[in-house]
Nucleic acid binder design. Structure first.
Lengths: 352, 352
DNA sequence: TTGTATGCGTTATCAT
DNA sequence: ATGATAACGCATACAA
């Protein structure tokens, strides 16, 4: 019995090879690999009939462009690397969604690198970048990745987001810290508070500095004397809120309201206050910043300033994607105005 | 004035080129690229003196292997892809640290893909895998990535972790759900409870099913009649805890204790109970599972079963790295025994 | 011990 | 409209 001819020249050989390459497709469609490549990237330059044959072959083989080869050839990948020190940051998740949506819309994929603020890991990702495995870099870290100078020089287009980047001249997308903090302080002021404590890390964190500035501007405008203001150090963790509270009570001159640099700090303060027997918000007002999910589950629920997380993600990615072709010079800074979210942790000061 | 000879043949040309390649190193060390490659990967096969020249050249140029080219050539990368549906999962962060430590120790890097349970995104990452951009796959998702069948067939070595993988025959590393749940139930029992409600999603989630089984085994052993057991549906979100609670009260026969499939559910129950004016744990006991950070910040702090997160991460990566050379057949399942964490949400039942 | 040459899967240039 | 081929950067079989 004569062997039945297969519809395509090399149908048999296909099963042997693991992943279909452009060559498999070419053979099956009976064209050159150049034509296959064209059919994919510039379909209008290919005759309709051949294009159809190629597409059919692609469908049958399940061919997907080998991104490694493509990037090697092109000197640029279509992946964006996001570097984050702490994946667990409650802000990170929804910013990421914004980033990814925007990236997808432009044909880019998103990869996340977890640095844990460890220079070693930073170096690893630097190497990753160095071999063009990502076309652009998004810094959620507040600083450029650490590593050999040689490598930091050759960084791809980069934009920082959420936390201002203190080293490296890069574009930045984030909340308008100053304006947001000012809104928060004004909310406290208009509730009648005059003795207010601010808790934050003003020395190294740029974002915290800006929030402190907004706080001070608002109090200046309300002509609150310096003697009625307290500024306490706190690195932005829940624990730092508790600690700052201890200091306040050690010094003995409690304020009527706390303005915390972020919600984590505020949660620490709320917990500490409750533990000391204060009833909130009757005895003391607390306001936060960020509006993380946990802000709702504390008692009383936190009045706070909401980070426009999704917008930050979207705009940061948009800016980066633009920068891929021509990095803006000088770097741009996009500040998004946040909204005040009024919940239950602020009322007027108690009569004393 | 005669031009001063440069110490190396092509020192000048280096500045022009963007990133140093193996060829730059070869020229500078005055050897062939093959020798450079060998000096890096099999140093013992290279004369000491040449090796030194090569190393020096590498140091000067800041050369790093182009991972794209290397992987293309070798047909395998040194990156591991972790697929997670929700980066914000409070369990994810510390598992990740375990994964990364183990990976680093073996010279592998970790990349995270955020699928959001979206098949489109899954397909993207499938393409990523398909071109050998990752040597192995870790599934935090509870299921294999969705995509064209053609591509799912060609998956690299894979292991699931944290949540049993319901499609795809893959190895798995996670907590011993059954034993952990049994411990929790026994804790409730030994506190004196006999009317206990279980809240969880027993239909589609394998892990939930196992926890329910552990619950039932413990109650069987204590000879609790079926009439004293309640099993309520809840998908594991905070909201699902509240909802299940509603159902209980609608039916009117409240238990004395709640065993929740996870902490999120338990937090929903605790909140709901507090909102209804119950004082915990005096009026009602609640036990969770996972020991997420938030378990500490609810009142009363949650008694729960702790996920061995770091161990899960470490062992899953170790298993995957082994599987790279020879995938175990049949797939292995590593179950880690969890500890009961006693806090304040469980006491004896109220006298009625 | 070292060098030459080939191929990994693409894209792009130049012919035809 | 299509095909042949070079080059991307590297690892390695084979020669020397």
């Amino acid at each position: 019995m004569p062997s039945r001819p297969t519809p395509f020249p090399s149908a048999a050989s296909l099963q042997a090879t693991s992943t279909a390459t452009i060559e498999d497709v070419a053979r099956m469609a009976d064209v050159s690999i150049a034509t296959v490549s064209r059919a994919i990237h510039t379909p209008e330059k290919v005759a309709t009939s051949t294009r159809q044959r190629v597409n059919q072959a692609i469908a049958i083989t399940g061919y997907t462009t080998n991104a490694m080869a493509r990037s090697l050839r092109m000197g640029r990948s279509n992946m964006i690397l996001v570097l984050a020190p702490d994946i667990g940051d409650p802000n990170f998740s929804s910013i990421l969604v914004g980033l990814e949506n925007e990236a997808r819309a432009h044909g880019y994929g998103v990869l996340i690198g977890h640095t844990q603020n460890d220079p070693e890991r930073g170096l690893d990702y630097l190497k990753f970048l160095n071999s063009n495995q990502a076309a652009g870099l998004l810094l959620f870290t507040g600083h450029a990745p650490f590593g050999h100078q040689m490598m930091t020089e050759r960084l791809p287009p980069t934009v920082g987001l959420f936390e201002p980047v203190f080293n490296g001249r890069v574009s930045y997308v984030g909340v308008d810290d100053l304006a947001g903090a000012r809104k928060a302080a004004e909310h406290l002021l208009s509730a009648g508070h005059r003795r207010i404590a601010f808790i934050g890390e003003s020395r190294t964190k740029l974002g915290h500095q800006r929030r402190l500035k907004g706080f001070e501007l608002a109090l200046d405008a309300a002509r609150i004397p310096a003697s009625d203001r307290m500024v306490l150090e706190g690195d932005g963790t829940i624990e730092s809120g508790r600690l700052a509270l201890e200091q306040i009570f050690m010094r003995g001159d409690a304020p009527t309201a706390f303005m915390c640099v972020n919600d984590a700090t505020a949660i620490g303060v709320v917990n500490g206050l409750s533990a000391r027997g204060y009833e909130l918000p009757r005895d003391m007002s607390v306001i936060g910043f960020d509006d993380i999910p946990q802000a709702t589950y504390v008692h009383p629920p936190l009045t706070t300033v909401r980070q426009p997380r999704s917008a930050i993600g979207r705009q940061a990615m948009a800016l980066l994607l633009q920068s891929l072709d021509a990095p803006p010079e000088p770097p741009r800074e996009i500040l998004i105005m946040p909204d005040l979210i009024v919940r239950g942790s602020v009322t007027g000061p108690q009569r004393r």
